[in-house]
Design a protein around this nucleic acid. Structure first.
Lengths: 342, 342
DNA sequence: TGCTTCTGCTAAATCAGTTTAGCTAACCCA
DNA sequence: TGGGTTAGCTAAACTGATTTAGCAGAAGCA
């Protein structure tokens, strides 16, 4: 094992040429008049020495580091973070880049630290991600530089990548109407705060719009909707119990996310009701549990991997302003059936 | 906004001193005889200009980049990956470092690419992580360098960080015996492959050892155990159904992980049995679903965040060889009760 | 033959820091 | 008065690449 990495100077010496020549040849520069023989010798020398350029040295000169920053508010809370990161990693690798990551935990001083640490390392661009689809204020430090918002929007002109929640709402509601559900469709997960404050959620209102549009197109509308403080299983459980106490039981229910649906399943099971025979259920996110539930939950999948990928591509393409809506495919599982005849 | 970053030369000029002086003062070098006045002027100049050193330039000279690599086989599959990364990020920040991440997807050429990309960027050390606790072969390229294995062990002398699965097994089984369960304790999730091949899993055999030790200490042993191809909900479901077909029903069941337990819950619910009145359930991992189940699942938590943190600390401490076992705390929820009297 | 043009290549500057070696002036002491 | 310290500071080399400016020799042409 050679303990010292070969440098460009080593390659040049072995090839019997100057560093300049070696550099130009290895970078495939056009318009140099270096001979075919020189090319051959440089490539051979580089291969023999296992030469790899020192990125620090290169970026010192070129101001390019082949490195992107991925800064998010929270990574651990949801499993989706991993998907976004994976998509970003994949795309970055395809473009010969690497990802520096940091999380701010919603703390401004951490955020400042993270951004500066990244800029100190000459990153070529920043992906600024939110774990819940929402509007946010972009730190001033980022404004002049190549930045893409991931799963987030802002009032600035920065490019952003978002899931197409409205289309998903349409798809989810249509799945019920197409199965024959009409006037007894319920919604679990209305939430004033999420619907009104884009800094809390952009998804809630978009999903709702899509749902209402689809139902209107089918000549119907929501029979009843239940509000939830938050979108966790316990809230879905409580919401379903309250639905079941009403005089007419819905034939189908739309849950604003899979965790609510999970709670709804629990309440249905407790009440001795079966999905989908007694009630169809459809939802959003395609969390892992959607596939684990019995029967499998039909749900519009958050395309997080795809989004991470698009963010990197947008960043590297140098787009100045662009809003990229990534479709949310409906995963059809066994939770939807035709409504039982009256 | 200044478009150009201030450099050390700018700071030096403004302070009326040489780059050498500015560098030494900002780095807090001992033994230089620079005056208090010089210190004052340099700090003032640096603050006024908002000076931040260029890490690329610095690492070119010092061979230190204040950057660590986090290379894992898979990031997205489990939510735990996020926890490990979060812990690592936290610890890295505390030591003024930043994390470059990459995933190999179990593909050797990706792995090679990732390692080289990291070394090209002069990382100060590498955390090589596996998403399932197991033994692995460390790529030769890493052998000479500062490396810590995370959630993995190897036959080499590298330091590693692992969850203490045996202690967890002991704790989990003890939770049942302490509640009074004795001779009707079942185990779901025996798996030859996982138990025998350390490259597949180190957890399976360690958990089993802990369980058997705890039961022996309580003067009993497993009444029955069910094998599972894999540790997914559907396997737990099938396993529980098979248990329920046996003549004597267990009073308590240990599942090898939470996903199995989730499936077991489903089978119990279908059979009209209640947790914990009809059967106590206890498990491993503390997946999010453990808290979502009704009743909440008692489970030994994988301390992934803690592990990520320890890995960074081990790496930065320069330990040459060290095996760090991180305890798995038992999260007590409502899934355990005394066995019903015969 | 003398001038230009082209071919094939290289020396040296540059990026932004760190580090080595050493300089100058003041001071101490005999 | 002169030699040795010491305090306080700096010039220049160095890290490993890229890039600019330009040189030597051959070929082309009148």
């Amino acid at each position: 094992m050679s303990h010292r990495r070969a440098t460009l100077a080593d390659v040049a010496k072995r090839a019997g040429l100057s560093k300049t020549a070696a550099s130009m040849i290895l970078n495939g520069r056009e318009g140099t008049r270096l001979s075919a023989e020189a090319h051959r010798r440089v490539f051979a020398a580089a291969a023999e020495l296992g030469y790899r350029p020192n990125v620090a040295a290169r970026s010192l000169r070129t101001q390019k580091s082949l490195t992107l920053a991925f800064i998010s508010d929270i990574v651990a809370t949801t499993r989706f973070a991993g998907d976004m990161i994976r998509g970003a990693l994949d795309a970055a690798r395809e473009h010969d880049h690497v990802l520096l990551i940091a999380e701010t935990q919603g703390d401004e001083s951490f955020e400042q630290y993270a951004i500066e640490a990244m800029l100190d390392r000459q990153v070529d661009g920043v992906i600024y991600a939110a774990m819940a689809t929402r509007q946010l204020t972009v730190p001033a430090t980022l404004l002049g530089r190549p930045t893409v918002l991931l799963n987030a929007a802002s009032t600035t002109e920065l490019p952003c990548v978002l899931p197409d929640d409205e289309q998903a709402g349409y798809a989810v509601a249509s799945a019920l109407t197409e199965a024959g559900h009409r006037d007894r469709i319920a919604l679990i997960g209305r939430n004033r705060l999420k619907e009104r404050d884009p800094e809390v959620s952009l998804a809630a209102s978009a999903r709702l719009r899509g749902i209402e549009r689809a139902l209107a197109a089918a000549g119907t509308r929501l029979a009843v909707s239940v509000s939830c403080h938050d979108w966790l299983p316990e809230h879905g459980y409580a919401a379903m119990r309250s639905l079941l106490r009403k005089p007419t039981r819905p034939t189908g229910v739309i849950c604003m996310n899979d965790r609510l649906a999970f709670g709804a399943y629990q309440a249905l099971a407790e009440a001795g009701l079966r999905v989908p025979q007694d009630m169809s259920v459809v939802s959003f996110d395609d969390d892992v549990i959607a596939a684990w539930l019995r029967p499998g939950l039909s749900t519009a999948a958050l395309p997080h991997e795809q989004m991470g990928r698009r963010a990197v591509e947008l960043l590297l393409s140098g787009a100045k302003t662009d809003r990229c809506l990534v479709p949310m495919p409906l995963r059809r599982r066994a939770s939807i059936d035709s409504p039982a005849p009256q």
